[in-house]
Write a protein that binds this DNA or RNA. Structure first.
Lengths: 228, 228
DNA sequence: GGAACCTCATTGTTCTGATCTTTCTCGAAG
DNA sequence: CTTCGAGAAAGATCAGAACAATGAGGTTCC
């Protein structure tokens, strides 16, 4: 992990330990504890503690010390928490959570994007769809994936809702994951057409069609829900 | 505002100033600046700075100082950011964003809840729906609202997806807001039936029906999308 | 004249040691 | 057994110092 500063390295180590379960909920530490564990000064230990507290992963109390909070309280939308979970044995669970989030988010994002996308965003969306067809039919999976990620990022950004837009990075992570699960026929041929349908609806200005097309696009993901 | 500790008071003041636009994106501060502005020591100023950095509301660089980041980079899922926005002139925008989020989230949450709710959660959901009818028909709006909030909280919790569950608090905030917009016939009579339909589908175990019922329940909210 | 290089002031980063405040524990008094 | 007070533990805050990166501005060399 990157560590331009000392505190970010300690934070990363500590966060990973908590997420991995090495420091389970209910564990109690002290600042002095952290200082020795990572050989840092009180100030650095305190800054890490404060950040984890701000992520609601720990609570700090006088006389008691630093207590690891149960997972249910964590700020699971923070990029670091997501990153730590993706880098731990909870990777599959985190990807599942994000996938379920996509199911709800992306159709409405497409709807909103249809209402609010700028001309520039519509053009970029069309370009991304064209790239998907180009690289999908010529079997260049990495470029196809990049176009796919770009496509979904634009939809989310064009939704005009900052809470939708903020999900672009973790959703990109999910997309990056899917090809590795080894479908032999990646990309699935119909997928390209579905993306084009979404793009056409957004460009035409038919929000309900865009929403329906996005739902269709996600239907295979949806089909897996029951199996979990 | 609450301020059990000094740093939380400073953090709150600073966060509010940034969200309100009093410190616009691009503004540059220094640590010494913060120390004097709030009459606190270096350590406290640093802890606040670190937390705001962790919310991606500021960046800290040597020689440059502390720079306010553009809104698009903020961690808009953090409860403090949401709180600051709700307490600022962006209140309406924040409520709109959350409402749009509900449109996507809640139908799938209902779907998932149908698949995953515990017997206890189903019973509590039924109780909440019954409370809604009881207090809705006897015109006790505060109790009706409490039951409504409880209803949606259970659906989100029962989804078994921590990212859905984490949205319970802000969504409760949206629900608390709606009656104040002064519908004379609050609660809307049909609403109770829609909630019951969701509850029945969840208890019966029909995920698609639950999803459809929740979508219907949100249809009036959806209708307002075009108007924005 | 311009581009590469050097110097230095500025500002965050880290460390240290001390003091204050809260809060739990334990023992003594009633 | 209950109540209350003294003490200890741990975080909270402050102050001062040394360190390190980095950008601005001047200098030197084509």
């Amino acid at each position: 992990m990157s560590a331009s500063t000392l505190h970010s390295a300690v934070l990363d180590a500590l966060g990973s330990d908590i997420v991995s379960g090495e420091l389970p909920a209910g564990s109690v530490l002290t600042l002095e504890n952290l200082q020795q564990r990572y050989s840092v000064s009180r100030g650095v230990a305190r800054e890490c503690m404060r950040i984890l507290e701000s992520l609601r992963m720990i609570t700090s109390q006088r006389r008691t010390g630093i207590c690891i909070s149960p997972e249910r309280q964590w700020n699971v939308y923070d990029t670091r928490v997501i990153r730590w979970r993706l880098d731990s044995r909870h990777r599959a669970a985190q990807l599942r959570s994000l996938t379920e989030l996509r199911l709800g988010i992306e159709p409405i994002a497409a709807h909103l994007a249809t209402l609010r996308a700028s001309a520039d965003e519509r053009a970029t969306l069309r370009a991304a769809a064209e790239d998907m067809r180009r690289y999908g039919t010529t079997h260049r999976p990495m470029r196809y994936l990049a176009a796919d990620i770009e496509f979904h990022r634009i939809i989310l950004a064009a939704s005009g809702n900052e809470m939708y837009t903020a999900l672009a990075d973790p959703i990109a992570e999910v997309l990056r994951e899917s090809p590795t699960h080894g479908r032999s026929d990646y990309p699935v041929p119909e997928t390209i057409g579905y993306h084009e349908a979404v793009m056409e609806a957004v460009c035409t200005g038919d929000p309900d069609a865009a929403e329906r097309a996005m739902t269709t696009l996600l239907s295979d993901v949806r089909g897996a829900l029951r199996l979990i």
